[in-house]
Design a protein around this nucleic acid. Structure first.
Lengths: 184, 184
DNA sequence: TATAATATAATGATCGTTCTATCTATAAAG
DNA sequence: CTTTATAGATAGAACGATCATTATATTATA
């Protein structure tokens, strides 16, 4: 992929996450990226397509982080007390939260901003991400019920949201504690 | 308060919640309210002030709902098994969730959209709301630790967020189950 | 020589906000 | 009961700014 295109996607993700999708203009994105407007339109057909590619890349990164970190915790489990798959996923999500700034879930925010157009591709993508996440949770421990999988998703969403108004590390720690109680 | 002003606040809240703050223009608000633009500016100095009044009214309504419903559940507790104060608050929040459409927390969304301007009055108001909510939770059962109060807040935030992508009543039910396990 | 990126300007639309001028309703004064 | 005064609401145009998008023409790179 072109360097310019990567720069654009990188800066667009930062600005969208900091300011929201509708608040940020393409002009600011190309200015901050030191890239000409026509170069943006050479790589993306429209702002919507840029938004979609930003979200797709973020989803890929997030799911990879979750899978990698959960696997790592499984192999390098802390001595005698080895966590369940659900607790490991909670820990992996906690790590993501503390590594990233506290502005909530970009997919939920996208759905909220574009949600009025019910069949907008951004909304479809956001819904797909949430479904993928739930299926990932369920598949990590098929012995668990669908209700239990939903509960872990609720914990993860809760931590993401609460970290917007409370201290991130504290929130992450409490989420793991709750996961340990619920999924011992 | 003037009827026109109430109509404006009512319609503005609906449109902001459905489309977001930056996506919706004042023109759409006054059109949908069948009110002249100058009447809006006669009651509100700016769009920001309209946003702030919408949020203030919503906070008042939400906190009243929480207090009323939690008190009601305390007095009319279900026979032998009377819930703890924390579980009652969870139930009250669940009721709010099922009564309102599923577009997340308007205060978090406001903070996300205006969060770049760190000292913007909308951000201050949103932060104040989250602090008020946590203090309300803590005060409902002073015997509980601050960590436990934070956990209930996490459950409530999680249910609000998860209800955006999963079925509301199901999410509300599971949140209450989790609260009962954690705060028996 | 061909491809990619550049700067700049123009498009038409919409944004928040203000101005002007007209209209309507209620309330005080005759 | 009128008349007049006051205030609130109306429609519509205009403001400058910004929006996403496109056109043009030039420069750099490979």
């Amino acid at each position: 992929m072109s360097t310019k295109k990567e720069d654009l996607l990188h800066m667009a993700e930062i600005l969208f996450y900091d300011h929201g999708f509708h608040s940020i203009g393409l002009k600011k994105i190309v200015n901050e990226s030191n890239i000409a407007m026509m170069t943006l339109y050479n790589h993306f057909a429209s702002k919507d397509e840029l938004v979609i590619e930003v979200l797709k890349r973020r989803e890929e990164r997030y799911m990879e982080h979750l899978a990698f970190f959960a696997t790592y915790l499984k192999d390098h489990g802390e001595g005698s007390e080895r966590d369940s798959a659900f607790v490991r996923i909670a820990s992996a999500h906690a790590r993501w939260l503390t590594d990233h700034s506290a502005k909530g879930c970009l997919f939920l925010r996208a759905k909220e901003e574009y949600g009025a157009q019910h069949d907008h591709p951004v909304v479809t993508l956001a819904d797909g991400h949430k479904r993928l996440l739930r299926e990932f949770v369920q598949a990590s421990d098929p012995a668990r019920s669908a209700e239990e999988a939903l509960r872990l998703c609720l914990l993860m969403e809760g931590a993401t949201a609460l970290a917007e108004s409370e201290e991130g590390p504290l929130v992450a720690r409490e989420m793991i504690v709750m996961a340990e109680i619920l999924f011992a």
